[in-house]
Design a protein around this nucleic acid. Structure first.
Length: 152
DNA sequence: GCCAACGTTGGC
DNA sequence: GCCAACGTTGGC
């Protein structure tokens, strides 16, 4: 089983939005970065566990856990001219972007903030804590996963 | 709201 | 294929 971290701006889609979704499940759309896409497409499997990270907000940090319930399939928003994530270069016959389905598992007891994580040597390998990092989907090692949860 | 860091685009 | 310009991300 793999572990991941996925970022979302809570103003756009928060963990509460996920919890309130039908079946507590939603598609993770709008990823428009090749590195992130490749990980979704090639490595994410049903059952993988994922940290839900709130970015660009008052307290950026890890707020909960979700699980992959459907592996990569075409991000159809890329075909919708009226959607902000529309990409004219994504051809329905050969989709450029993919999404996965995620299911709410639980909130963390408290938010584990970026500020709190940064000083810990155990997570220095995580792109999340590296300067200037913008990757919205990243792998988390089992050791990092367990360590972060031990802070809860 | 600011702005540094980054990824992408497109002219050459 | 280089790289300047541009748009976006995301912490602060």
């Amino acid at each position: 089983m793999n572990y991941w971290l996925m970022k979302s701006e809570p103003d756009a889609f928060s963990i509460d939005n996920l919890q309130k979704s039908s079946n507590q499940t939603a598609h993770w759309d709008g990823v428009r970065n090749y590195q992130a896409r490749n990980m979704m497409r090639d490595e994410m499997k049903v059952g993988d566990q994922v940290f839900f990270y709130h970015s660009n907000c008052a307290l950026p940090g890890i707020v909960g856990i979700m699980e992959i319930t459907k592996e990569a399939y075409p991000d159809y928003l890329a075909f919708d001219v009226n959607d902000p994530h529309y990409d004219p270069k994504s051809d329905p016959d050969s989709p450029r972007w993919v999404m996965v389905d995620v299911k709410f598992i639980r909130h963390l007891i408290r938010t584990i903030s970026l500020q709190e994580l940064k000083p810990h040597p155990e997570v220095q390998g995580l792109p999340l804590v590296q300067r200037g990092n913008r990757l919205s989907i990243m792998p988390v090692s089992k050791e990092q996963w367990d360590f972060i949860l031990s802070l809860e």
